[in-house]
């Protein structure tokens, strides 16, 4: 398998009132093409920070992020925008991830318009995308507060799919939704992965979800990676102390 994304020795320290707090400490992992990679751990262990580092929303202190073997951390301007055609993200709170003053359709079309696509072309593709995420076309003209969380998250997935990315990061994409809607979204993600050959980086704290979807998983604790492997093995036979606690707290 070819490596799509490589994370090497990423380190990030935040300062709150000059007191250092190590959010991510020497994390290394890689995501292969077409793979679903899970990142699990408790709240505040640095999972979302990694997602933000990969998408350039935060700059790490040290380390490197390679996409298809090329360093991405120092890309700026046009090249940075090009990176966003390969890496996309679905956020935790669907309603907050859409501009409240613009329609969902506008949000989905934004990346296509930024790539220089003509308006009618972008519109056509937007309706295709809505179909892909199983939303009726009339949702294009709705505002984020007019739709439910699950529908909004589907629109967010459609937006993430718009530039045809190679990697989609789902940062707790299902945790703000209720259980039945969660299952639908998970199913949708799985379907898209198979149809589009998409790689998924799934960030969540739900071990059952990881076991269902992911090919490999990394367990994080207090900023560091404690255990990596195939989900079934990690969950059935945890090697690390923390992983045991995590697994025990679920089952």
């Amino acid at each position: 398998m070819e490596k799509l994304l490589e994370i090497k020795e990423i380190k990030k320290t935040f300062y709150k009132k000059k007191i250092p707090f190590v959010a991510v400490d020497n994390i290394c992992f890689d995501v292969e093409k077409g793979e679903c990679f899970g990142l699990v751990g408790e709240s505040g262990c640095g999972k979302s920070t990694i997602a933000k580092i990969i998408t350039h929303l935060i700059t790490p202190d040290t380390g490197s992020v390679l996409l298809n073997g090329e360093e991405t951390l120092f890309l700026r301007g046009k090249k940075e925008r090009k990176l966003y055609q390969d890496i996309q993200m679905v956020f935790q709170t669907p309603q907050d991830s859409f501009d409240p003053r613009r329609t969902l359709g506008d949000g989905i079309m934004e990346s296509m318009r930024n790539q220089g696509m003509k308006k009618h072309q972008a519109k056509e593709r937007m309706y295709e995308l809505l179909e892909m995420v199983e939303l009726p076309g009339e949702f294009a003209s709705r505002y984020p507060h007019e739709v439910s969380g699950g529908q909004c998250q589907r629109a967010a997935i459609a937006r993430a799919l718009a530039p045809n990315p190679q990697l989609m990061i789902c940062d707790e994409a299902t945790s703000a939704l209720d259980v039945t809607v969660q299952a639908q979204i998970v199913e949708l993600l799985n379907k898209l992965r198979e149809e589009q050959g998409l790689s998924l980086l799934l960030i969540c704290h739900d071990l059952a979800l990881v076991q269902k979807l992911c090919d490999r998983v990394l367990v994080m604790y207090k900023g560091g990676g404690v255990e990596q492997g195939v989900p079934d093995e990690v969950i059935q036979n945890p090697q690390n102390e923390y992983t045991k606690i995590l697994v025990d707290s679920v089952f």
């Binding site: 998408t55 929303l57 966003y84 993200m89 956020f91 991830s97 949000g107 934004e110 930024n114």
Partner: peptide
């Protein structure tokens, strides 16, 4: 998040501020 999402959609700073 919608500002992050706009950035991920490839909008530059000016566009994000203005739109």
């Amino acid at each position: 998040p919608y500002i992050s999402a706009a950035k991920l959609s490839g909008s530059g700073t000016w566009k994000i501020v203005w739109k």
